[in-house]
Design a protein around this nucleic acid. Sequence first.
DNA 1: TTTTCGCTGGACACTCTGCGCAACTCGTAC
DNA 2: GTACGAGTTGCGCAGAGTGTCCAGCGAAAA
Lengths: 161, 161
Amino acid sequence: MTMQVVQLDALDARIVELLEAEPRIGVLEMSRRLAVARGTVQARLDKLIARGAIKGFGPEVLPEAIGFGVMSFVTLEISQRYGHQAVADHLAEIPEVLEAHTITGSGDLLCRIVARSNADLQRVIDQIVGYEGIVRASTIIALAELIPYRTLPLVRAASGA
Amino acid sequence: MTMQVVQLDALDARIVELLEAEPRIGVLEMSRRLAVARGTVQARLDKLIARGAIKGFGPEVLPEAIGFGVMSFVTLEISQRYGHQAVADHLAEIPEVLEAHTITGSGDLLCRIVARSNADLQRVIDQIVGYEGIVRASTIIALAELIPYRTLPLVRAASGA
DNA sequence: TTTTCGCTGGACACTCTGCGCAACTCGTAC
DNA sequence: GTACGAGTTGCGCAGAGTGTCCAGCGAAAA
């Protein structure tokens, strides 16, 4: 079930760009900056959201700012007898697990985990491997964030800019 | 330089939760739902943003919705003669590199990369390893997203809920 | 040529925001 | 006990933005 792909043009990209830079900006101000009619910006934005290119405008919570200063990537190997879904359900109950993917290669799952400290990370990992469906965990700690998560360059590239 | 930690309470968590669920909701409506004064919600929100717990309300772009359906994690090993920063600068110029971290363990860098297809991923990786500061790359392709990126459970946990 | 589609510019009523204010409650320091 | 500061409340105001119409217009498709 491949997701429908939205082809963006330059205006779409500039809208996203503006919103990324100044999220509280509002449709009217955007239309002024981009020198197009308000209705146009509104229509484009509605289209982007309707097609799923933009998911929403939720608050971006920074884990390190609320006490979770340690970030790590953990590769999990799971027992064949347990399905991926069962393990996912287990992981979903642990708040420190921010995301999880099934992957190719030596491991089975890759997940992003935060913790309050290195010692706290041990606690979280113990909680993860405490589940019998998980055979072993391999932990990689992120030391520094060289490139914080971003999508702007991608949007520009996709719009042909 | 440890970031200042913000201690959240239950009201903070409920505000974040509401915003996450309905981003376009507005302060007034939030105050109604939470049965507190508008000024209170406004003050809390300002505080959360000022202290850095919430970064902003930028649009969340879904790479797969704009044509980048392949997601991967690439571990890079870099030459000692080149600094991390030089490599980061190189990576930053590639739009498909969504984030990058320095890490512990066998590799030096871990980055998240998207591409339009598996063949396209090859192109991106070639572009990455084309830089002489990078010795080798090890690619892991994400097959399925078991847990999409989330921070809500973390916020609840941090607020003592 | 005619139709369709997207953009424009304008209008309307409605709602929200930013801001300030006086009053109240609470924990703490004196 | 009393005073203080911080946080919350409820209120009001002016300004601005939003959602939603509409008619006109040009370009591209039929």
